[in-house]
Each structure stands twice: as structure tokens, then as C-alpha cells.
């Protein structure tokens, strides 16, 4: 032990397979911890994970059905609300879960295999699982009652759902990392998420809008995702307008920025 010279000790890095296994284990541990913390073991416990979004979706479906909201297509309002609101829950709750997620969890970083990215990803996976199960169960329930049909192209629904989830995760990671830097992120995200809701494609079909409005609304990436989901679900009688390339490009760039941001904040983090 001495103040020795700077002879760098090069060690073969951990094999990628091992590292992946470790990361998977860590994320799973964080996920279980998060789920247990959030829902506890009381009453229905874990089930809240998807019961909560289900209640939201059912509520909105009921509201829209009662008020007979104009949505500009021949799709039954229940099916319309189901696809629309589930999609909103998917991408909008993710940033909410990640913003300011780090501060209360900083001591976890004492366990060296727990990285900032893992803390975010565990929450995102939980959110994804909840929104997906809610959508799945409600779709099955509504189909049994006869309010909706089964999706015409299940693969397309899944594809759209995953793209939307990717977009939501990238956005969440980016905002989550950014929120370490500035509390403005949290302050601005709340109004922003409410303002984007009516524009997000949940409450209308793009086809029902006039041309100028379509061009404007299609600037929002999530609209493309919702349209893909709807086209897959309702098939030909919902004329969808979307550009897969656009939402993928946006999600990709967001992912890139998010990962950069996570790397950038790492040195600034002070564990109490």
C-alpha cells in the first residue's frame, strides 16, 4: 500500500453473458422490491398493478359512452376508449414513474451492481406489465360481453403496443435522468402530460380530423403508435394514418439522448 505510479491494471472484462445475467437478476430484484413497496401485501396486493389502470380505463370508457363523445369513426365507443386510453396509460405513466425516481433510491447505489439504469428499467417494466395486463384483460372482458371484437391483426396490435412502450420508456428514461438535474422537469411534465392527452390520439381517429389538423397532430409520435394499435385492432374499418419510421426514429433518438443523459448525471450523483 503506497502512493504508487499510474500503472494501469488491465483485467479482462466480465463476460457479457455473465453481466447480462447479473443485470437481469438485479432488475428483477428491484422490480419485486418496487412492486412490494408500491402495492404491499394488503387486500389484493400485486393485483393492483393492473387493477388500477383497469379502473381508469373502465371509468373513461363509461364516461365517453355516456357522453357519446364524438370521435369521428364508426368504431363502437367502448372499443375506441379501450384502445385509446390503454395506450395513453402505457406511454404517459412511464415518465411519471421515472421522474424523481432516483432520489429516494440513491442508497441502493451502494450495491455496486445496482446502476441508475436498472432502477429506472425496473420501474418501467412494472409499468409496462401493468398497462399490458390491464389492456389484455379488458379486451378479453369486453369481447366476452360482446362490446368489442377480437383484434383483426393481433400481431400488428402487439407491434404497435411495443413501439409505443419503447417510445414511453425512452421518454421516461430521458426525463427521469434529466429530473436529477432540475426539478423543473417534474413541474413541467405534469401540465405537459395533461395537455398532450387530448392531442395524443386517444380521443380521436386521425382520419376524422381535417387535413391541416392531421399534419399537426401527426407530429406527435405517440399518435402514430395509437393509430397502429387501432389499425391492428379494428382492421380496415379504421383508416389509420401513421409512419412507423417516424415514431421509431423519434424513439431511437430519445433512447440515445436518455442513455447519454444517464451517463452524464452519474458523476453528479451524491449519495447521502
Amino acid at each position: 500500500m503506497s502512493a504508487a505510479g499510474a500503472t494501469e491494471l488491465r483485467r479482462a472484462p466480465v463476460p457479457l453473458g455473465t453481466a447480462i445475467a447479473v443485470q437481469r437478476r438485479v432488475i428483477f430484484a428491484l422490480l419485486m422490491r418496487e412492486a412490494l413497496t408500491r402495492y404491499g401485501r394488503h387486500n389484493i396486493g400485486f393485483l393492483w398493478l393492473f387493477v388500477e389502470p383497469m379502473i381508469f380505463t373502465i371509468g373513461v370508457t363509461a364516461l365517453w359512452s355516456i357522453t357519446k363523445t364524438v370521435h369521428g369513426s364508426t368504431i363502437p365507443i367502448t372499443a375506441f376508449a379501450l384502445t385509446g386510453y390503454s395506450s395513453v396509460l402505457l406511454w404517459r405513466n412511464m415518465p411519471g414513474r421515472c421522474i424523481n425516481a432516483l432520489m429516494p433510491n440513491l442508497p441502493l447505489l451502494y450495491h455496486r451492481n445496482v446502476r441508475i439504469f436498472d432502477i429506472f428499467v425496473a420501474r418501467l417494466l412494472l409499468e409496462f406489465a401493468g398497462a399490458t395486463m390491464s389492456f389484455l384483460l379488458l379486451a378479453m372482458l369486453f369481447t366476452l360481453i360482446g362490446w368489442t371484437q377480437l383484434p383483426e391483426n393481433l400481431l400488428e396490435v402487439i407491434g404497435g403496443w411495443f413501439i409505443l412502450a419503447w417510445f414511453g420508456m425512452a421518454l421516461a428514461l430521458f426525463l427521469g435522468a434529466l429530473s436529477v438535474r432540475s426539478e423543473l422537469v417534474e413541474k413541467l411534465w405534469h401540465p405537459l402530460s395533461y395537455l398532450t392527452f387530448p392531442l395524443s390520439g386517444a380521443a380521436f381517429m386521425v382520419d376524422a380530423l381535417p387535413r391541416q389538423a392531421q399534419d399537426f397532430v401527426l407530429l406527435l409520435p405517440m399518435v402514430h403508435g395509437v393509430e397502429i394499435v387501432r389499425e391492428g385492432y379494428f382492421g380496415s374499418y379504421a383508416r389509420a394514418h401513421y409512419d412507423v419510421g417516424y415514431i421509431v426514429a423519434v424513439a431511437l433518438v430519445l433512447t440515445f439522448l436518455a442513455l447519454l443523459q444517464i451517463r452524464a448525471v452519474a458523476p453528479d450523483i451524491i449519495v447521502e
Partner: peptide, 21 residues
Amino acid sequence: FSLIVWGVATMLIAGIREHGS
């Protein structure tokens, strides 16, 4: 875009590699 994809892939793998056993 390939640079961005590469950046994402690189950072993801570097992130995974931060997990020693």
C-alpha cells in the same frame, strides 16, 4: 442514424458490463 444506433448499442452494452459478478 447508424451512429445513433451504434451509440445506443454501445451505451447499453457498457451499461450491462458495469454489472460485475
